[in-house]
Amino acid sequence: MPWMLPTILRNLLSRPVTRRYPFDDVREPFAGYKGRIDFDADRCDLCGDCARVCPSLAIEVTLESRQITYDPFKCIYCATCVEICLPRAIGQDRRYTKPALSKGVETIEVPV
């Protein structure tokens, strides 16, 4: 029984390790964290590689209307599209997508 005692007392006497998330002591995600997906419409050449490799079909590229539809609630943030994109039009932020009360898709218009 006494084996846990030193740990307990040490914890009791030192400051808790909790990262008090919404308030302070928050640890930012590390630099390479796979978070939100951002599209850079100016760079995109509508090749559709991202839509083809996406394992969860979260990206749709329509050539006719020059639109990209991205569903953050289907995306698994695996970064495969980021790696495949030749013109580097897809970037990944280290911040994660925020929860929402309803689902929705993002539509990105690609200029001519």
Binding site: M4, F30, G32
Partner: peptide
């Protein structure tokens, strides 16, 4: 029913997860 030990193990595990996030991105 050993909650404090559970917390200790998961505290150590969080260090492993930090390494994972740093090196692999998740």
């Amino acid at each position: 029913g050993f909650e404090s030990l559970f917390m200790q193990c998961w505290r150590a595990r969080e260090m492993v997860l930090d390494i994972s996030e740093m090196t692999a991105g998740h």
